[in-house]
Computed example of a mutant assay.
Amino acid sequence: MSRIYHLKRVQRIPVSLEQAWNFFSNPNNLLTITPPFLNLKITNQVYGDEIYTGQIITYKVKPLLGIPIFWLTEITHVERLKMFVDEQRKGPYKLWHHQHHFKSIDGGVEMTDIVHYAFPFGLLGNIAHAITVKSQLNKIFNYRYLKVQELFGVWKGEGQ
């Protein structure tokens, strides 16, 4: 049986809620905050500058040994200026459910990512997670954290 894994990241960003939403809800900006080693390419026409419920986005990504993998996601929920969800419909995971939450705080925005994911192949998928995938996902989200700081600055609010 495949295990369901969970990843949660919180980042505080010194911009307005509107600025954060405009950046993160634009599918084309995913390329800006994705590490170059993944070689991510959006492969379909993306309409508009803001995601919408039902939107389909297709990608080619090379996460391991330069082998290209097709990935199709659907934006399944959008609450403007609050949250959106993307779910894999076809790709390397058995389950990929990624929530993006945004909340105004003093001095900026708190952005929270919550990802639930699972692998096919039962025990073999769980072993792959332990050997490579968990650390790969952490590298991706660490890169994104630093890239967001580079783009928008370091939050200097209380408690940091």
Rank of each mutant, 00 (worst) to 15 (best):
V46R: 03
K8H: 12
M1Q: 06
G153R: 06
P35S: 08
E110W: 08
E50P: 09
H97F: 07
L95C: 09
L137W: 05
T43C: 06
V109N: 03
I57E: 02
K134T: 13
Y93H: 07
P14Q: 13
T112L: 09
K62H: 01
K41I: 01
E50I: 13
F70T: 14
F152P: 04
H100C: 06
M111Y: 08
E18S: 12
I57V: 15
S16A: 07
H116W: 13
G66T: 02
L123Y: 15
G159Q: 11
F119V: 04
S25T: 14
K82T: 07
R9C: 07
S25P: 02
L38N: 00
I69H: 04
F141S: 04
K90E: 12
R12M: 14
G54Q: 05
V154H: 10
Y59E: 01
E158S: 09
I56C: 06
Y143I: 01
E79W: 06
F24R: 15
E18W: 03
K103H: 13
H101G: 02
W71S: 02
K82S: 11
G122I: 13
L7D: 05
L137P: 01
G108R: 00
N28M: 08
G125R: 04
R9W: 05
V154P: 01
Q149M: 09
A118R: 06
P120W: 11
P120R: 12
E87K: 10
F70Q: 13
R9S: 10
L123V: 15
Y5F: 12
L38F: 00
R144W: 05
L64K: 02
V154M: 10
I69N: 05
L151W: 06
W155Y: 14
D106R: 06
L123H: 12
F24M: 14
V148R: 01
N138H: 09
G159V: 10
F152S: 02
F24L: 15
F141N: 03
A128S: 15
R80F: 00
R80G: 01
L137C: 07
T43R: 09
N44Y: 04
A20W: 03
S2L: 07
Q136D: 08
K103M: 13
